[in-house]
């Protein structure tokens, strides 16, 4: 019973990633594309945590925290470049 829920969740999040990557490739402005990549990364995070339970490996859950932190850093880089034209380096 539990495996059906987890596998259904993985398939639903993969459909979400496939639909969102159309916007990430095609999107009319640069802001749409960065927003789509942001959301793709958060869905990837949930797929990782569901797979870590399905495969019974406990060490795969340490990879979740850097994903969340670095996609926030990407948002800050793009926003700083759009506002002031340079990144202060």
């Amino acid at each position: 019973m539990l495996e059906f829920v987890i596998i259904g969740g993985i398939i639903a999040y993969t459909i979400g990633i496939a639909l969102l990557s159309v916007i990430a490739v095609k999107g009319p402005t640069i802001g749409d594309q960065v927003l789509a990549i942001d959301t793709i990364t958060y869905f990837t995070l949930v797929i990782f945590s569901l797979l870590a339970i399905l495969l019974k490996q406990s060490l795969l859950t340490v990879t979740l925290i850097p994903l969340a932190l670095w996609v926030y850093a990407l948002d800050v880089y793009v926003s700083k470049y759009l506002i002031s034209g340079d990144l202060g380096a």
Partner: peptide, 18 residues
Amino acid sequence: IPVAVGLIPGVLIVLISK
């Protein structure tokens, strides 16, 4: 993950701003 999602876009954005 830090190299490809965080640092490489950061360094490339500094490059294209200059």
